[in-house]
Design a protein around this nucleic acid. Sequence first.
DNA 1: GTCTATAAATAGATAGAC
DNA 2: GTCTATCTATTTATAGAC
Lengths: 222, 222
Amino acid sequence: MDSESDGKPKRLTRAEAKARTRRLLLDAAARTFARKGYAGASVEEIAEAAGYSIGALYSNFGGKEELFIELMVGGAKARVERGGQVFAAVEAGTEDPVTALGRFLMETSDKDDDLALLQAELWLYAMRNPGMRDRLAAAQRESREALEGVMEAVLARVGASGAVPAPAVATVASAMFQGLVRQRRLDPSSVPDDLLRQAMRWLFIGIANAPETPGPSEEDPS
Amino acid sequence: MDSESDGKPKRLTRAEAKARTRRLLLDAAARTFARKGYAGASVEEIAEAAGYSIGALYSNFGGKEELFIELMVGGAKARVERGGQVFAAVEAGTEDPVTALGRFLMETSDKDDDLALLQAELWLYAMRNPGMRDRLAAAQRESREALEGVMEAVLARVGASGAVPAPAVATVASAMFQGLVRQRRLDPSSVPDDLLRQAMRWLFIGIANAPETPGPSEEDPS
DNA sequence: GTCTATAAATAGATAGAC
DNA sequence: GTCTATCTATTTATAGAC
């Protein structure tokens, strides 16, 4: 509205202040949704956790649902970046790539207590909202593609390059990882530090030694 | 209170009627919690889905939370039974035990649409209620022990008996299974029918061919 | 035993002050 | 841009009729 150039030496422009508020609210929302669940978290709790009022929340977001959806798409970007980190960690390391992969995954999963909870909430929300299901599936495809690069590198090192499609391996490795993380959160004694690395070893050794993938009956032998 | 023997030719005794009502309410609760989530489901919806009123629900259960907890302990029993079924299916079948295992798991998971949703809800609830976390962990230990029998049988067939602790294998196989089921529910095209069987093959072949399990640094060499 | 009616608390969302 | 006050709907749980 004010077209005059005010030379006010403000530290933050209005746009910057708003962006900061949005970020704080999103962080608080991630924590709160993880700890209380989507339906269990109230907008009041979220605003309070961010240090703002309900009004500020509604001034920056359409409401509770929009907040949650923004976390879903934002989390997708974070996952792709994490995929790149895994790739870098595995490529750069001089050690056994499977060991590097296993340790990196276990470390990152132990670092963020809320991540597994929030992902479970996102999955449930996506399963119950068809439109969101497709969006989350697309987001996960992206992050899995980032993982495929790692898989190919690892497969090459164990001497099974091209023996098996990388997407399938990435899917299985990712499922194994997420399943073990959830089990570890529920009962840490049942999933020792080293089990993820060992499981990854078994998987890749198995792929390297598996005979020609004989179909259940037969599929396309091309 | 009425000590007189009333010879009323009722088809259901009071106790039987109450037991039936409880069962119908529990079934409805399982469906409703799976579809709407624990916090998202109202007692009114549950009672309605069971064909009763709110009053009947409160007459049979302490409330929403007690209903959910009964589902958790009831589900534990069901899991142990299912473990026995897996064992029977794998032992009885003349075919490759890994194929039998993979197919059995995929079939049972595709059969019940709500099961994976309800299990995710139970996990989240357990993660947020320490007392329930221990109870769910104990229940899962039981069902995993049932799986260990299957694992030993399969390991024996691939010639890796005793090479590796069965509990660890059961944990990894279970994690892989659950992770793939969730991924399949989210994006069926990313997890073809045969992938679970193939993943199980990779796992067991890997175990059979893995060298002496070299520790990350070293642990107890006993 | 089950139902209807209702109490008491809390939810998401909005309006207007500043 | 953010806060306070409030509206309306829905929630869990209970009380009393039948």
